[in-house]
Nucleic acid binder design. Structure first.
Length: 854
RNA sequence: GCGGGCGUGAUGGAAUUGGUAGACAUAUCGGACUUAAAAUCCGUGGGCCGUAUGGCCGUGUGGGUUCGAGUCCCACCGCCCGCACCA
């Protein structure tokens, strides 16, 4: 007998699918459609095992939906703009486009052997001018619809390289290449007005029933709706034309605990002072040091500068509060000014202690030991829903929750004419400008007479020039000799092109819509979008829970407003699944200085759970670490496929862990997966030649088969791939041991192949054809469990005594509670526990359990 | 720092969502087949006590709710994801 040989059978079936056009998405009204999409990859150069897992999951769904009678759309493309291509050009020369397209070719070549059911005819890369030209058309439509704005934003400025840095290029507050201290600088930028949709994006989360609750919660917190008070502190002495400081606070109830006013270094008052006072200028320069991330701001040492200016408290004009410039206040938030209440905010308390400012509690706990912050305790910050005792209420009960107090405080302030209650959102507008070459050019022109003018649509795409160099920092578009110069689309006079390009999040915010009509002359084709949208199942990493998904939700709305998507697509992803990573053990030794040295898995021998190098040295095993090239704990899918075949890789990445969690890649696990597939192949080959007559064991096998159909179907439907695979293992064991007749075993083996076909499609096709299945298994209708074969007439119930399992009974399935109780109480173990007495209580959960309390 | 999540045998994990903890798989050990090895097949497989029937303990740690907790609540510890210019 020949053996399981994926190296010949996998290409054979891939060719068969190709020739039959099995996975070309077909629009037809006679079948329901199903659109399954995995987040498309960045073309980094090689696929990694995480891609294999991600795309295999999508493939299982796609193939399952195909066999349940759907027109399936399962496309693939490339998120191809971005910094790595420019960094490669800087480091090694060459052009970002060449680097990117070569990587795409490599990765496509690595992906195709996986046998994914992808409609490759729809493939595109976001750096194709055909794609980004349509993106420019969208930009122009958004601009005309008032969905885009221009204003200032803070960026990381590298004063040595004279360039804007991405957050990831700022390491410990220093530029990654220059090592210079980064400073925060303001620049005029383009913005999508996503904050206009804050309320809607928040409210609509409720309708996303098939999204993970945690993702919806993260988005809700990110959008961050808050109710607060906007009001002004009058200044004791006006300065440079300013006589008041506008603040927004979510805790107006603590207004009587106010201690100081804090303003951003970029606040208009701070800027005035900076221009006139070198000491203020020095402080502001110091305060602007470091990166722009929220994390950096929160973790930085809190610094303040006493301006000497004072404000009056709105409730008591004799009460004067000092105005500090503080480095932790961002101009982008609220009004760029706050009042500090040290008793009820730890950051304000640290600040107050550092600068010797007063601390006044406005409420204390209802009971228990409490050291007041004025006496050296921590800031008291209970949840707003907790009741506390107020020592300084204005118009509410002494015992009230923070929530009630805030509402009462807003009402009180409004009645006194001190400000007004407002609802604000944390969500900021989406700054899309990037001072980089390798992105979609922003299609506008700056004209001296006409101002900012959008490019004419017939001139799209505004293509990136090819003749650029990356030998000096900064954006090559800025210094390109001719590309910048153009004619104003409005008046025809000489003008300058915008040299900023778009954030790569823009590219990925509508690619799912483009897949429905990837060659259309407009961004989308409404008929195609009507048919294929929405994405029925979207699959990707949890790291995209907020930004990518929120931006896509905004884009879908904006595309609807501008007539590029139907109403129903305002929420473009019906269901979302976030999968875990693939991890791998790290093998580590130490050099003479105690520094870690890492070793590739293929250079390590595993014996008795220990790892040894070729020279016999034992290496430490660090399990389940995120794969990283520097730690050398990577496995190359290409090597796995050539060693075991794609089906083994696919089977393994699905088998060991629930899809939403991380899975640990182990050599022994991959080996075992391969052995199992070889066993299934052997089993099917034997069954193909079997001639045993029908017999008494047929029914037991078929019953088990129907149960397996049910379990595997449920598993696939609910993303329980690992559980489905466990059932398939169990059923393979049953089939291997079965003495049923040849016909029953053939039926069982064909069904087994069908149930395995979404995971191991090549092996499944091979078995299907071996056992005389009709056509391709990929097109065969999914097996349906026969309800009659699932019914059991008896059930085994565990008997607990005081919650501990002591015995079990087997009873008729529909036996009454009273009868079950009677049988349970008669059980030896129960009798022994009762010791002649009567039970205190008997709990009978039908079909589940009996618990006797003694 | 803030927001979100995760934690079960030597290992990856299962558990019908509050009802028999450890399915399925890996490592290990034992056996069959073989001159031998590989492959394959059968068995063992949380800890402790016991020849065994069985008993006690056990889901990161500590507490709580419940007839019953891996599952719910509170606190703590550890790890992971995100924090708006990485993709």
């Amino acid at each position: 007998m020949s053996r399981y040989d994926p190296a010949t059978l996998e290409p054979k079936w891939q060719k068969a699918w190709d020739e039959a056009g099995t996975f070309l998405a077909q629009r037809s009204e006679d079948k329901p459609k199903y659109y399954v999409l995995e987040m498309f990859p960045y073309p980094s150069g090689r696929i990694h095992i995480g891609h294999v897992r991600n795309y295999t999951m999508g493939d299982v769904i796609a193939r399952y939906k195909l066999s349940t009678g759907h027109n399936v759309l399962h496309p693939m493309g490339w998120d191809a703009f971005g910094m790595p291509a420019e960094n490669a050009a800087m480091d090694n020369g060459g052009h970002p486009a060449d680097w990117t397209y070569q990587n795409i070719d490599t990765m496509r070549g690595q992906m195709k052997p996986l046998g994914l059911s992808i409609d490759w005819s729809r493939e595109f890369a976001t750096c194709d001018p055909e794609y980004y030209g349509q993106q420019q058309a969208l930009f122009i439509d958004f601009l005309k619809a008032g969905l885009i704005d221009r204003k200032n934003a803070t960026v990381n400025w590298d004063p040595v390289d004279m360039t804007v840095l991405a957050n990831e290029q700022v390491i410990d507050g220093k530029g990654w290449r220059s090592g210079a201290e980064v400073e925060r600088r303001e620049l005029t930028q383009w913005f999508f007005k996503i904050s206009d949709f804050s309320e809607e994006l928040l409210e609509a989360l409720d309708g996303l029933d098939d999204w993970p609750a945690k993702v919806k919660l993260m988005q809700a917190n990110w959008i961050g709706r808050s109710r607060g008070l906007e009001f002004a502190f009058g200044m004791v002495e006006p300065t440079h034309g300013h006589d008041r400081v506008e603040v927004y606070t979510t805790r107006p109830d603590t207004l009587l605990g106010a201690s100081f006013i804090g303003i951003s270094p970029d606040h208009p008052i701070a800027k005035e002072l900076e221009a006139h006072d070198p000491k203020v200028a020095a402080f502001c320069a110091e305060a602007r040091r470091g990166g722009t991330t929220e994390e950096a701001l929160e973790k930085a040492e809190k610094l303040g500068f006493d301006t000497g200016l004072k404000c009056r408290h709105p409730f008591d004009t004799s009460w004067e509060l000092p105005i500090y410039i503080a480095n932790f206040i961002l101009m982008d938030y609220g009004t760029g000014a706050i009042f500090g209440c040290p008793a009820h905010d730890q950051r304000d308390l640290d600040f107050a202690r550092k600068y010797g400012l007063p601390v006044t509690s406005t409420f204390v706990p209802l009971s228990g030991d409490h050291t007041l912050p004025e006496d050296g305790g921590e800031a008291f910050v209970p949840p707003k829903s907790d009741k506390v005792r107020w020592t300084l209420p204005f118009n509410w009960d002494e015992e009230a929750t923070g929530e009630a107090a805030i509402d009462a405080a807003i009402a009180f302030c409004e009645s006194k004419g001190v400000g007004h209650g407002v609802t604000k959102f944390r969500l900021r507008d989406w700054g899309l400008s990037r001072q980089r070459y390798w992105g979609c050019p922003i299609p506008v022109v700056h004209c001296e007479t006409c101002g900012v003018v959008p490019e004419k649509k017939e001139n799209l795409p505004v293509e990136l020039p090819k003749d650029v160099s990356f030998d000096i920092p900064g954006n090559p578009l800025d210094r390109h000799p001719t590309w910048r110069d153009c004619a104003c689309p409005s008046c025809g006079a000489p003008a300058k092109r915008e040299t900023d390009t778009m954030d790569t999040f823009v590219d990925s915010s509508w690619y799912f819509a483009r897949f429905t009509a990837p060659r259309a002359e407009t961004p989308t084709d409404m008929a195609e979008a009507e048919y294929w949208m929405n994405v029925d199942q979207y699959i990707g990493g949890i790291e995209h829970a907020i930004l990518h998904l929120l931006y896509s939700r905004f884009f879908a709305r904006a595309m609807h407003i501008t007539g590029h998507l139907p109403e129903k697509s305002k929420e473009p992803f019906n269901a979302l699944f976030t999968q875990g990573m693939v991890t791998h053990a790290i093998y580590q030794t130490r050099d003479e200085n105690g520094r870690p040295v890492y070793h590739f898995p293929e250079d390590v021998d595993l014996r008795d759970g220990k790892a040894f190098l070729s020279d016999g040295t034992e290496a430490e095993i660090i399990p389940s670490a995120k794969m990283s090239k520097s730690k050398k704990n990577v496995v190359d899918p290409v090597a796995i496929i050539s060693q075991y075949g794609a089906d083994t890789a696919r089977w393994f990445v699905l088998s060991d862990s629930p899809p939403e969690r991380d899975v640990e890649w182990t050599a022994s696990g991959a080996e075992a997966a391969n052995k199992h597939l070889a066993r299934v192949w052997r089993l099917a080959s034997e069954i193909a030649e079997a001639t045993t007559p029908a017999g008494a064991e047929d029914e037991a096998l078929l019953r088990e088969m129907h149960k397996t159909i049910q379990d595997v179907t449920n598993g696939v439907e609910s993303f329980g791939f690992n559980a489905a695979i466990a059932k398939l293992y169990a059923f393979t064991n049953t089939l291997a041991k079965s003495r049923a007749g040849a016909e029953a075993r053939k039926t069982a083996a064909k069904t087994l192949a069908q149930l395995m076909s979404p995971m191991t499609p090549h092996l499944a096709e091979e078995i299907w054809s071996l056992l005389g299945g009709e056509g391709l298994i990929a097109n065969a209708p999914w097996p349906v469990a026969d309800e009659a074969m699932l019914v059991e007439d008896t059930v085994t119930l565990p008997i607990q005594v005081n919650g501990k399992r002591r015995s079990e009974i087997t009873v008729a399935k529909d036996l009454s509670k009273e009868e079950v109780e009677k049988i349970a109480l008669a059980d030896d173990a129960v009798q022994k526990a009762l010791d002649g007495g009567a039970p205190k209580k008997v709990i009978v959960v039908p079909g589940r359990i009996v618990n006797v309390v003694v």
